[in-house]
């Protein structure tokens, strides 16, 4: 499968040549195929945000390159402009970018910049609002009258409305209560199932993402430390903890059980899998 988007030896240095010089991303080779749901995890400051801002040409690499379907994202201004519509990036705390008089107009801002027709825009706005679970009655309100969670969803809709091939979300649930978090995660999963596009979901909470992602990429100090299916990544409990990430409690429990000599599988990260493993163990032990 040829990759949809990839980075080659991507390096980004902030304030190069000053006393504040800081290497935020170092030699990252990454690629994502169409339809993947990738969780990007890492400690605060590990370079996740810096990395994803290269995917649509917001930041220019210090060295290395970013390719979308084999084409260099920074090849020319025209290419970069096109890429902005194809790689949708939702920044952290996106509600701070709302500015229009109505939610409808704000969601339409991206599609309008893509110079789409009026009807097409209207249709996309409705579709995007539905994906993020905003009721149609809210569309004519001022975005500043919405609740925190609703604002966040309106801002995400503003990017979804561009119908990007790759949707990148930078900590979309930061600062929300558990219920708002759950809703956003569920809506994004629904979006992914319906559209089948590639989703990159940044978070520093493992528990959030482990249930949905088809693949996890772990960042540490500007480099990719682990990359693979969740059960693969969660085998490396010690390494994850050394990096400073908290693995899901189930994973932790099972890792301890294993170290105490119990024969359970590695890389268990959901309660269901845990229950199954325990039942199997009980059955296998013959003392049910």
């Amino acid at each position: 499968m040829s990759p949809l988007i990839e980075t080659k030896k991507l390096t980004h240095i902030y304030s190069e040549g000053t006393p504040f010089e800081h290497v935020a991303v170092r030699d990252v080779d990454f690629s994502a195929a169409r339809g993947e749901f990738i969780g990007i995890i890492g400690h605060t400051g590990s370079g996740k945000s810096t990395f994803v801002q290269h995917l649509n040409g917001i930041l220019k690499p210090t060295s290395g390159s970013v390719l979308l379907e084999g084409e260099d994202v920074n090849g020319s201004a025209a290419v970069t402009r096109r890429v902005r519509g194809r790689v949708g990036l939702v920044f952290q705390y996106p509600e701070y970018q709302l500015f229009e008089e109505t939610v409808r107009a704000d969601i339409a801002y991206g599609p309008k910049n893509m110079k789409l027709g009026k009807e097409e825009i209207e249709q996309r706005v409705l579709e995007a609002a539905d994906f993020v679970g905003l009721e149609a009655s809210l569309l004519d309100h001022s975005p500043f009258d919405l609740s925190g969670g609703q604002k966040r969803r309106a801002a995400i809709a503003g990017v979804i409305a561009m119908r990007p091939d790759v949707l990148v979300l930078d900590e979309p649930t930061a600062g929300l209560d558990p219920r708002g978090r759950e809703e956003i995660i569920r809506n994004i999963c629904r979006y992914h199932d319906a559209v089948g596009g590639t989703v990159l979901y940044i978070t520093h909470s493992m528990e959030d993402i482990a249930r949905f992602a088809t693949r996890l990429v772990v960042f540490n100090r500007g480099q990719i430390a682990l990359d693979g299916a969740p059960e693969e990544v969660f085998r490396h409990v010690e390494e994850l903890e050394r990096i400073g990430l908290t693995v899901p409690s189930v994973t932790k429990v099972f890792s301890i059980l294993r170290s105490r000599g119990l024969e359970v599988a590695e890389g268990i990260y959901t309660v269901d899998a845990a229950v199954e493993a325990l039942l199997r163990l009980k059955g296998g032990g013959g003392n049910a």
Binding site: Q97, Y109, N113
Partner: peptide, 13 residues
Amino acid sequence: DKIMNAQKARGAE
């Protein structure tokens, strides 16, 4: 800078 980038991501020039 941040807001500019966020709007650029939505196609602002």
